[in-house]
Each structure stands twice: as C-alpha cells, then as structure tokens.
C-alpha cells in the first residue's frame, strides 16, 4: 500500500436495513481505516436513521448496525458527522446515538464535503 494518505469521506444517504448498501458503506469505511487511510463518515438524509439508539436488528435476522457504529472509534474512525436537519426530521435522539456524531447544518455539510480528496456516496 502506498504511503500516500488521501482523505476520504463516506457519505451514507440510505436507511440501514432497507438494502445491503448500508453494510457496504460501513465495510468500505472499515477497510479504508484498516489500511491506515484517513476516513470520516457523514450520515445525511435517510442515512441518519443509522444513528437511532437501541436497534433490535435480531428481530429481522441481520447484524446490528448500531453495535458496529459503536465500535468505530476502535478502528480509528474518529470523525462521524450527522445532518442536523434530517436528524430533526426523523427525531433522532442525538444525545443517545451509538457513536458520538457532530451535527452539521447545510452550510457545515457544504464546507465538510470540500475538505476531502474523495467522496464515496452510498
């Protein structure tokens, strides 16, 4: 692997559990982190539903996304961002998210997107 470290932002726009894209986006984030790349995650639109507390995914026989998110700091994925207006729309309890997420308004999201070399949108 190259010594070059480019900054990548994973943009998660889909709800968890509705399709396999949710898991794919997080797998991509974990792979980037495992190979020592700089990677952050932004949950926006329907994607903010990833951050609901107390997900009971065993009821539908799939892995718990919330549990995976709570382990992100162990993988050196430190910066997790949350679309504040979508969080409000879906009434996500931002005080009890599975992983600490910094809320951004639309202007903040615009500034964030400009900071990265690569955006991977899922």
């Amino acid at each position: 692997m190259s010594s070059e470290r480019r900054k990548t932002l994973i943009v998660v726009r889909r709800a968890p559990y509705g399709s396999s894209l949710s898991r794919a986006s997080l797998d991509a984030a974990l792979a980037l982190a495992a190979f020592d790349q700089l990677v952050d995650i932004l949950f926006m639109g329907d994607g903010v539903l990833h951050l609901l507390p107390d997900q009971m995914s065993s009821n539908i026989g799939v892995k718990n996304v919330g549990k995976l998110l709570s382990s992100l700091p162990l993988y050196d994925i430190d910066a997790v961002y949350l679309d504040a207006s979508a969080a409000q729309q879906y009434q996500v309890d931002t005080a009890n998210t599975p992983v600490t997420a910094q809320q951004l308004d639309n202007a903040g999201i615009q500034r964030l997107l400009a900071e990265y070399d690569h955006l991977l949108g899922f």
């Binding site: 692997m1 070059e4 889909r14 980037l32 495992a34 790349q37 690569h118």
Partner: peptide
C-alpha cells in the same frame, strides 16, 4: 478481490467516481 483494492484505488487516483447507491 478484496476491499483493499478499493482502498488502493483511492490512494492512487486523482478522482474516484461513484455510480449508484
């Protein structure tokens, strides 16, 4: 191959363009 190939692509490309999602 594995996701390492995606990581390698990000490290060695000026532009990574996503289709779909």
């Amino acid at each position: 191959s594995g996701l390492g190939q995606l990581v390698d692509a990000t490290a060695h490309s000026d532009r990574l363009v996503t289709f779909g999602g």
